[in-house]
Design a protein around this nucleic acid. Sequence first.
DNA 1: CCAAAAGTGTTGGTGGTACACCCATGA
DNA 2: TCATGGGTGTACCACCAACACTTTTGG
Lengths: 230, 230
Amino acid sequence: MILSNYRSEDKVLLAVDGIIFGFDKEKLKILLVQRDFEPEKGKWSLIGGFLKREENLDQAAIRILHHLTGLNNIYMEQVYSFSKVDRDPAERTISVAYYALIDIASHDRKLLKQNPIQWFNLKDAPELIFDHNRMVERALATLRRRALNKPIGFELLPEKFTMRQLQKLYEAILDTKLDKRNFINKFNSFDILIKLDEKDMSSSKKGAFLFQFDEEKYKRKVEEGFNFKL
Amino acid sequence: MILSNYRSEDKVLLAVDGIIFGFDKEKLKILLVQRDFEPEKGKWSLIGGFLKREENLDQAAIRILHHLTGLNNIYMEQVYSFSKVDRDPAERTISVAYYALIDIASHDRKLLKQNPIQWFNLKDAPELIFDHNRMVERALATLRRRALNKPIGFELLPEKFTMRQLQKLYEAILDTKLDKRNFINKFNSFDILIKLDEKDMSSSKKGAFLFQFDEEKYKRKVEEGFNFKL
DNA sequence: CCAAAAGTGTTGGTGGTACACCCATGA
DNA sequence: TCATGGGTGTACCACCAACACTTTTGG
């Protein structure tokens, strides 16, 4: 900001790339798009686009996601800015990575079908263009940190869910196995769940009770943060 | 990254602003520069400049710091990118914030004197231009998180220091009082300090033993991370 | 001899971890 | 009746938090 003359400074392209995490029963997934222009046409890429002059980065991330997928009202969070000089061979481009969490089942997938867009299991996602693999790694690390410091699940699960689903979500994010009883005890201690009278009969004969998040309390916990040690 | 034509996209100025934290005996300080061009000439600002086409953001942060202060070999870490549309009234500019930690006493201050650059106690720093106050807040939050998850002090203390100094550093960063015995016990459990045979006589009649970081072990702990609860 | 900072351990409580058996039901 | 997943409680241990007195020595 100093000793500068604005006019003489270099301008660059600023991209925004979205790492969209989804969860569907068991596995953590990621939404990718097949690139339809050069360079790297035909290869898989994150959901990306360029910042426009009249919007900020948060708005750009949301706009681009909506434009490519039709997804709406998705909260995205900034992860990191990537700036290796030759990261995009076509043009000097800096990219700001954002990530989002969504519940795959509860978003309309018709819109996705129009585009060369597809969910992949995170573990067997294809090689991505440029430095997008590094972006995914970094976003995943951020997601894990977040899962350990704040409740997670509101954005990634259907409205009603079983304890098992919640546990599987944590296991998928942290890539680990958790003890059923300890998980339940711990999670209940946060006091953000409402136990419903309904059961989900789809996965067992006995049926499993459904839960909902208490949205008020959930949000308060997100503000406060906590320490999830497992 | 998709459905785009690179040529038609908007280009923007990309600034890098450095939040330089220093520590000097008791207080956490911040390095600011008086802006000598319009807009906002004469007001205080972070250590900033613009990204050049042929460097990445990390390099830009280091170059700018060196250029304005003469400081060398300072490790800087990216915090966040700020992009409000009218954040800089002169021109559409996105700014990437970086922060650094340095030991004030052990860096040559002569160079600083040439420039309108000055250390301020963090607590009574002046109002800054643009959104720089928000950047400082965010960097401080990042610094606190880091202090709770990784050892800190190597960059902020002289080579040899007393336990008291180390504790004061943590107190300054976390803005809290800590118990002497608990702090020492906790910190010793990390096993990254070497107790020297020397004493520092400057602050008491009895003298206080000096310590050094065991650089190997310190670095390993930084990799691993830990959970500093106090 | 006294003021001022340094140094040093113990205890109680909280919370994390490990662990195994019974329940309900559809097939 | 049995196979499958659902649901539940306890005991040990580690770590955090609170807390006060003695030592050293320059002035």
